[in-house]
Design a protein around this nucleic acid. Structure first.
Lengths: 139, 139
DNA sequence: TCAAATTAAATTGTACACAATTAAATTGCG
DNA sequence: CGCAATTTAATTGTGTACAATTTAATTTGA
């Protein structure tokens, strides 16, 4: 019955590490008034400027149940706009604002700071990255 | 500014993979009437039979804000009991019931089924496991 | 000794996450 | 064409997560 020992699980360290790293982001993101989920949403917009909610959800592995209230909050903060597509009224288009673009500068230092704090060498980081994307690909 | 690309992050695939694997557990755990968090809680009790809420939280990286309502639900389901410690009334002792023990048999097949579905070979699994625990150790 | 500090669980408030449902718009097929 | 099937966002309901606060019990130090 050792298969049911917590220390023998693969998912548990994944779940715990994920939460732990998100928690490490928190004080840095607090300065930008963003939560982690809001931050990865902004990351997509910093790359794309404009995207539909569906496509955004495909990138982030989130659905409208999570994204709708989150995007409304970011809209209220003035970081993005929400507009129905002219071509297809079902689609809601999210577009980054000037203010949202400005936030990118303030976030620029975060990734390196987090990576440094993880104390992984280059090989370990590359291996972990590759294994995680392999898993993600089949989920 | 490539450091802010989603595809260059280490935390994002961790976060997404964690959620994806938990989602894969869900249909299996539904048959036991457990959520993933309830399941890892039961895993600790299948190993230890009895544990304080604080120690349980240390194992699972969860605090009383999460555990208190979760443990109350598991108590209502008859899987555990909650009793104040005689020696120190601040401590709440969680103890598995007969019914809780029985559930272990029903859960026995789950870990192998999940592992199989991840399509990792032995080396990959060992490497991932080792890297995740290294990270977890410094969080 | 006994008030201050510490510890532990519970509570409160906010923010995801996601299953399931709803409602509106669009597509496709007979 | 016209209606059924599909697609999309929003809503509803449940269950975490966790920061911050509260309350009660215990420990500690002047």
């Amino acid at each position: 019955m050792d298969s049911l020992k917590l220390s023998n699980q693969m998912c548990f360290p994944l779940y715990a590490t994920s939460k732990g790293i998100v928690k490490r982001y928190t004080p840095l993101l607090n300065e930008l008034n963003l939560t982690y989920t809001q931050y990865i949403t902004m990351m997509v917009l910093w790359e794309r400027k404009q995207i539909g909610v569906k496509q955004l959800g495909d990138h982030l592995f989130l659905d409208s149940g999570t994204l709708t209230p989150l995007l409304k909050k970011l809209e209220i903060q003035g970081l993005l706009t929400r507009t129905r597509s002219q071509a297809d009224e079902r689609n809601l288009i999210v577009e980054i604002t000037e203010q949202g673009e400005l936030l990118k500068e303030q976030a620029a230092h975060i990734p390196a700071q987090i990576m440094k704090s993880l104390h992984l060498n280059e090989d370990e980081a590359a291996t972990l990255y590759q294994l995680l994307y392999k898993l993600l690909g089949q989920l």
